[in-house]
Design a protein around this nucleic acid. Structure first.
Length: 595
DNA sequence: CGCCCTTTGAAGCGT
DNA sequence: ACGCTTCAAAGGGCG
């Protein structure tokens, strides 16, 4: 998808979002209404204002409503199933669940509406939201240098991006640092405005904002009390006091982080939100080279672009010195993309809801959820990601993803797995044995997998890589994350925002589901997830999956995979339904053979 | 200790 | 232009 982006992704922007949406929802768009991309985005963004309403309709909200009682603690105790299975089971409960009283993080309403007690926003909240989107008025100014670079490399019209972001509908005066401000204040500002900030004055209008009600949570997780605890939100941001969020290393970059930026309160708040206070080193007396910011990691992994090193690093010819230098260089991480932001935000919730802690499993769940998100919801994250990139760009003008790219020769390759390109993406591509069967069922793994403990790739007919007896569902809903399987279908079925966003929408069609889900769309999710969860035949996940009727769930679960794989189209949905009813056969792997 | 797993998206690299 | 690869987060699993 990203490739589609004509700009090459440099544009930071809207394009990406649009495209991604387009791609993912290609069918959807055709089916539903092929509103122009621009319009979509615009709508999405403008609609964000009324997010509360939207959210209420969204599955998430309903999910919230349906959130079952506290999860059972048993999950962990159970024999550990495959990540996938675990994910599925856990996933079942993800969408449900009442607000967690003790939950450490506060989520912003618009994004996490579903998790709000009532799924509704207080008037204030709305106000807050309304102020959210005036962001994209990015002033090319500070970005120019960097963007110039980018432009040089790629034709992508960064400037256009900044200007074009439809979101710009805000009439407000734009502060030079607007991007940051909006980014931070409006997007990330915690419910409690930073102490240093004059109450809540709208940077643009100068009019004091209504204080954010406590219930309004920051976009990014932020410990409720932490804000106050932090002497100065900027503490770690401001050079004098500490380190910029995206610290600028002495020698790291040609253009040190603009003072203005550092001073920018909003920025700080953003940063603090982006990188929650708890992440901030307790002592704000961080030296400039310190690595207080999560984005900057002590370079175990050195940064390669020597060009970044300014004089500070005497490009000594000695390796030792080089190493030292390298060590000195902070590792500036890539800005988080939309999904990463989403994960970051939601992971805690997922973890909280499920006892499951394995990131792999959780990520699977998150991946599904991501697909289940409505465009609007995703748009938010895309937008955030865009800003993130912008911010990152501003902070590290000279930084390039290349700096962290270790694919080159002689580089310590961090290569993880030798997965075939598109392996995960390929709908046809089965899950890896480990993912499929889990550690507990290694007997089912294919030989290579067993030997290596690491699944190379599922080979049809090979070894015992057979679809799990009852766990059929596993495969099927197995990482629907695989775009082909779920993503596209999902999108297809997903009619725009209004529609609920059950995890695997494709699975929804089940008549049963409809019946039960009539009221709140979310219910569908519940069903699906339940089905999946129980697919393994394991006890319901502790993630509160009990709600669903097991039988229906069971039926459902088996079918989807086949339908999905065979036909990742809306039609599949229906077929699947029928199938589900009549033929509860585990097709997980079988499907593959079909192809 | 360090990589793997897992997810999506962005971006670099190679052809 | 296209496709593949790497890296972002995260934390348990595993050699």
């Amino acid at each position: 998808m990203p490739q589609l982006n004509g700009g090459g992704g440099d544009d930071l922007g809207a394009n990406d979002e649009l495209i991604s949406f387009k791609d993912e929802g290609e069918q959807e768009e055709k089916i539903s209404e092929n509103s122009s991309a621009e319009r979509d985005l615009a709508d999405v963004k403008s609609s964000l204002v009324n997010e509360s309403e939207t959210n209420q309709n969204s599955s998430s909200d309903s999910e919230a409503e349906r959130r079952p009682p506290p999860r059972s603690e048993s999950f962990r105790d159970k024999s550990r199933e495959s990540l996938e299975e675990a994910a599925k089971r856990q996933d079942g409960g993800l969408f449900k669940g009442p607000p967690y009283p003790g939950y450490p993080f506060i989520m912003i309403p618009d994004l996490t509406g579903p998790y709000l007690p009532n799924g509704s926003l207080s008037p204030t909240a709305r106000t807050y939201l309304q102020m959210k989107w005036p962001l994209l008025d990015v002033q090319a100014g500070s970005l120019q240098s960097r963007q110039a670079l980018k432009d040089a490399r790629s034709p992508s019209p960064a400037h256009i991006v900044s200007n074009k972001v439809p979101v710009v509908q805000h009439p407000h005066h734009v502060h030079p640092l607007t991007p940051l401000i909006t980014y931070s204040n409006e997007h990330f500002t915690p419910g409690n405005p930073p102490p240093h900030l004059p109450a809540d004055v709208d940077p643009k209008t100068g009019i004091p904002r209504p204080p954010h009600p406590p219930d309004i949570s920051p976009y990014y997780p932020l410990s409720p009390g932490t804000v106050g605890q932090i002497p100065h939100p900027l503490g770690w941001l401001v050079p004098q006091q500490g380190q910029p969020v995206y610290p600028i290393t002495t020698g790291g970059f040609r253009h040190p982080y603009p003072t203005a930026l550092t001073v920018n309160a909003s920025m700080s708040s953003f940063l603090s939100s982006r990188f929650p206070p708890h992440m901030v080193p307790p002592h704000h007396s961080l030296h400039t080279t310190g690595i207080p910011h999560p984005a900057i990691v002590t370079p175990t992994v050195k940064q390669e672009s020597s060009q970044n090193d300014v004089g500070s690093l005497h490009s000594s010819k000695h390796q030792d010195s080089k190493k030292e230098e390298e060590k000195k260089k902070p590792h500036i991480k890539k800005p988080l993309n939309a999904f990463m932001l989403y994960m970051k935000e939601m992971r805690a919730k997922v973890v909280a809801e499920c006892t499951l802690k394995e990131s792999a499993a959780i990520n699977q769940i998150l991946g599904r959820r991501w697909h289940a998100l409505s465009r609007e919801e995703q748009a938010k994250y895309y937008e955030l990601a865009r800003k993130e990139r912008q911010l990152h760009m501003q902070l590290y003008p000279g930084w390039s993803a290349r700096d962290n790219y270790v694919g080159g020769y002689g580089k310590k390759k961090k290569r993880k797995r030798d997965k075939q390109p598109g392996e995960t993406n390929d709908a046809n591509t089965p899950k890896k044995c480990r993912a499929l069967f889990g550690l507990d069922r290694q007997s089912l793994w294919c030989k290579p997998c067993r030997r290596k403990k690491k699944c190379v790739r599922y080979i049809q007919g090979e070894g015992s890589c057979v679809s799990p007896p009852s766990s059929d569902g596993s495969l099927l809903d197995s990482p629907p994350s695989s775009p082909n399987m779920l993503a596209s279908p999902t999108r297809d079925s997903k009619p725009q925002t209004e529609q609920t966003q059950p995890l695997s929408l494709t699975l929804k069609p089940d008549p049963l589901v409809h019946l039960s889900m009539m009221p709140p769309p979310s219910s569908s999710i519940v069903l699906t997830e339940n089905s999946t969860s129980k697919s393994s035949g394991l006890p319901a996940s502790n993630c509160q999956n009990g709600a669903l009727d097991h039988q229906s769930a069971t039926l459902q679960q088996s079918a989807p995979s086949s339908s999905l794989l065979a036909q990742p189209s809306t039609s599949s949905l229906h077929s699947h339904n029928s199938l589900a009813g009549t033929q509860p056969q585990p097709l997980s792997l079988v499907t593959k053979s079909l192809e």
